[in-house]
């Protein structure tokens, strides 16, 4: 079953935004993790993951998001999420992700948190 997905990156001077599109499963999660790791290695410690175009996430995808949180935490960085649906936010809070990453309604507020 074809799952079309994509990741768009907008790297600014102080932060970068990774915008996912499609079902966030292990495949998209691994791609996202690799791109986040590339940004971290370039020195970015403030990342936003925009999930507005990702309608569905599975628990494997979420586990990979946790790995990104951990990778940033090692650099004393910050990961903010935005564009979550109600169920996504509820799931993130249940899994305690909200304790270690920011959750914001949109990209603007997620980026503003870095200021």
């Amino acid at each position: 079953m074809a799952n079309k997905f994509d990741i768009n990156i907008r790297a600014e001077q102080e932060y970068a935004v990774l915008e996912t599109e499609g079902y966030l499963n292990d495949a998209l999660g691994e791609q996202l993790s690799q791109k986040a790791q590339d940004l971290i290695e370039k020195g970015y410690t403030q990342l936003v993951i925009n999930l507005a175009k990702t309608a569905l996430i599975n628990s494997i995808g979420i586990s990979i998001l946790i790995e990104i949180i951990e990778a940033l935490d090692e650099r004393e960085g910050t990961l903010n999420f935005c564009g979550l649906s109600a169920t996504q936010e509820r799931t993130f809070r249940m899994m305690a992700i909200a304790k270690y990453a920011g959750i914001f309604p949109d990209e603007k507020t997620a980026v503003a948190d870095f200021q």
């Binding site: 946790i66 790995e67 509820r90 799931t91 249940m94 899994m95």
Partner: peptide, 12 residues
């Protein structure tokens, strides 16, 4: 990181 599936099901 893993083993959340059943908890998610129960929650939803």
């Amino acid at each position: 990181k893993r083993g959340w599936g059943l908890e998610i099901i129960h929650a939803l």
